[in-house]
Amino acid sequence: MNDRIRILADELANNPVSLCFVELGALLRKIGDLTGAERVLAGGVARHPGHVEARSLYGEVLLDRGKLRDAFREWSEVVETEPRDVGARKGLGYLFYKGGQLDEALEHLEMALSIAPMDQQVRQAYSRIRKELESEETAASAAPRGAGDMMLADSRGRPLTGGLVTDGRDVSEEVAAYLVGVSDEAARSARMLKLGNWIWITTESGNGCLHISKPTDDSTLVLMGGPGVRPAEVEMRAESAAKTAKDWMDDSRVD
């Protein structure tokens, strides 16, 4: 790789208008020479402002260098010239996501997906941001008493929406991972002891209570009550939250 870099650098030195700067910039980035890559690409795009691929790559190098504002400017200009540039759309999607502007991020990723529907990276980013957006909406509607005490998890041990916070620490993922085992064991115990289907589990300990239920076959809802909260109160809230969760799950399902 270093030989190739040397050849390209020589060529560029002899012929500064050569388009080999794109390959050289990409190789320098690959070997971790971000400063070199930025310098070569900055020079190149200044000479060839219409070279969309080079500018998209330049945006990536700027992002690597932590120059988010510059990367944003570069990619914005790229999509003005070429609205179908997937790299720039991905980059803008990421920058908006970092800035907490989920709607805008989604818009760029939607565009990227329409151009490259099989791009796994885009698909994953898109579905993650969509879920986050939806979870914000659900948490807002289902948890009027504030976030951090209610979570819906899927049947594979992952949080779907909402979240659990204990002593300022997000415990959602850990709890979600164990919920699958609880739910499976509850179903088995109820069946084998001839108690029919299980409806919910409530636990009480020194630091509070948990209420676990299954709003749908493929989800588990858990509500957490602090030390002063009565289990019966959590149980009542769980009932209405289960209804909301069921509706949300039904709406989210792709036919």
Binding site: V175, L193, I201, S205, N207
Partner: peptide, 28 residues
């Protein structure tokens, strides 16, 4: 087994081992 699995969950939630676990089912 149920108590053990529930304990994992309550500990993960920062509640410690449970003093009381109730499984409510359709018939009991």
């Amino acid at each position: 087994s149920m108590y053990r699995r529930v304990s994992h969950t309550t500990k993960a939630a920062g509640h410690g081992p449970p003093d009381f676990v109730q499984l409510q089912a359709e018939n009991g």
